[in-house]
């Protein structure tokens, strides 16, 4: 154990952990819960051996706490349950015709170049994300956590990696279409 106390963890890394959680959970209360649970788990685990920086170690715990919170939420709200995905199978098919060609070919966009355009693009992207089914936007936001260790995380969320790829695909199809409609207009 380094000579840092749990209070140092809170003071030095609390804000960072909060931002990390807030970006992915998009809910201030849930993000606070995730940070608190992380610090408590860190005290209990006593596994910190100074091999990685405290922040890296704490972020590793936080990732699992974020997954935990999402799993709990999905239990409470079946519409957000990540493991229930079979029912809406037909959604993506509207983008393609029967022979597998694009029903509507993707329109050309100007990629957001300068800082101002990137900001505008981001605002539209966030709005588009809010229109996705919640479980899809959740998974899309957690994609980088998922990428780190997709076997373990799929197990925790009770989904198969294949299922997760299908959901990420649907999220991207929805986002891309939404951006096409709204980004092109600007």
């Amino acid at each position: 154990m380094s000579n840092q106390t749990p209070h140092d963890w809170l003071n030095e890394h609390g804000d960072y952990l909060y931002r990390f959680a807030l970006a992915r959970l998009r809910d201030a209360h849930l993000a606070e819960d995730a940070v608190q649970e992380t610090l408590l788990a860190a005290i209990q685990s006593r596994t910190y051996e100074g091999k990685s920086a405290p922040r890296t170690w704490l972020t590793g715990i936080l990732k699992h706490k974020i997954i935990d919170l999402i799993r709990k939420q999905s239990r409470e709200k079946p519409s957000e349950d990540l493991s229930q995905t079979v029912a809406d199978e037909g959604v993506v098919d509207e983008f393609f015709n029967e022979s597998g060609h694009w029903a509507d070919r993707p329109q050309a966009w100007a990629a957001p170049d300068d800082e101002l355009e990137q900001k505008q693009f981001l605002v539209i992207l966030q709005n588009c994300m809010d229109r996705l089914p919640k479980k899809l936007s959740r998974l899309f936001l957690m994609r980088d956590i998922f990428e780190d260790d997709n076997q373990a995380i799929c197990k925790e969320l009770e989904i198969s990696p294949t299922n997760a790829w299908v959901m990420l695909y649907r999220a991207r199809m929805g986002l891309r279409k939404c951006l096409e409609l709204h980004w092109l207009e600007t």
Binding site: A28, L39, L122
Partner: peptide, 25 residues
């Protein structure tokens, strides 16, 4: 956006939450 948010120093744990966590710790 994720990495900008993670680095955004203006975004901090609310004071209330910090106090609550200090007690929990």
């Amino acid at each position: 956006w994720l990495s900008d948010t993670e680095q955004d120093e203006h975004l901090q744990l609310p004071l209330q939450a910090k106090l609550r966590m200090t007690q929990a710790l």
